[in-house]
């Protein structure tokens, strides 16, 4: 996917560039962010037992630890005002339980070839693939999300993590956490029919708590 397709607000570029030293992250996160399926504000401290996070880098490190323990093999950073957006690789979910598939099937972004069967010859309905992306947004200038086309959102989400920067540059890491900083977790859920329509669930099909519990970590609510 080319970056030109990502919805962006060019007017925010100079402000962000000043804050982050004009060189740091690969690209802007769509701003305001696309409307998620579910979202929740969290404390920038991330974990309930951790001491207060003093810098953006500390928040990023705590989030990265959670994602590594949840076996995310890749994630990407994008610039947002006063912080970052950390986007996880798109996951393939079991349509019945809403839990990610195990093993390599977790990262499949297209329906896996199911093999020929008598039932497939006479199948008159088509099963869909279900997908999920987490976005952790740390910003001191939160904006209300705006809806965009489901197909476009899915296409962005497919390569979001890979096209982001793998780590934060030093100047962004050094930014201090102020009273206006908020950490928001956003979940984007999709239903994709092969060769057919894409649905972006709004609101989410599965509870946000279920998604968060699959991360296997307790997250601190905002103070």
């Amino acid at each position: 996917m080319s970056r030109e397709t990502a919805p962006q607000a060019p007017s925010t570029r100079p402000a962000i560039a000043r804050e982050t030293g004009d060189r740091p992250l690969k690209d802007l996160f769509p701003w305001p962010p696309p409307t998620p399926s579910a979202q929740r504000a969290l404390s920038p401290d991330v974990n309930p037992d951790s001491p207060p996070a003093k810098t953006v880098g500390e928040v990023a490190r705590r989030l990265e630890r959670i994602l590594r323990e949840a076996r995310f093999d890749s994630f990407g950073y994008y610039r947002v005002p006063g912080g970052f957006a950390l986007v996880t690789r798109i996951e393939n979910l079991d349509g019945t339980t809403g839990e990610p598939f195990a093993g390599a099937a977790r990262w499949a972004t297209q329906k896996v070839y199911a093999g020929l069967s008598f039932a497939s010859i006479f199948a008159i309905t088509r099963s869909a693939g279900y997908y999920r992306v987490f976005v952790f947004l740390l910003t001191d200038d939160p904006k209300e999300p705006q809806p965009i086309d489901p197909e476009k959102t899915f296409e962005i989400a497919r390569t979001w993590a890979n096209e982001g920067s793998p780590s934060l540059p030093a100047e962004v890491k050094a930014l201090t956490i102020g009273p206006n900083h908020v950490l928001v977790v956003m979940v984007y859920e999709f239903e994709k029919f092969e060769g057919g329509e894409t649905n972006h669930f709004q609101p989410s099909r599965w509870p946000l708590d279920q998604h968060l519990s699959s991360l296997g970590a307790k997250l601190k609510p905002p103070q």
């Binding site: 297209q110 329906k111 070839y113 199911a114 093999g115 020929l116 069967s117 008598f118 497939s120 010859i121 199948a123 088509r126 092969e194 060769g195 057919g196």
Partner: peptide, 14 residues
Amino acid sequence: LYIVLGAHASGQLR
């Protein structure tokens, strides 16, 4: 023809 009809449902439609 029937095998291809089944392949429409099993794999990549396009």
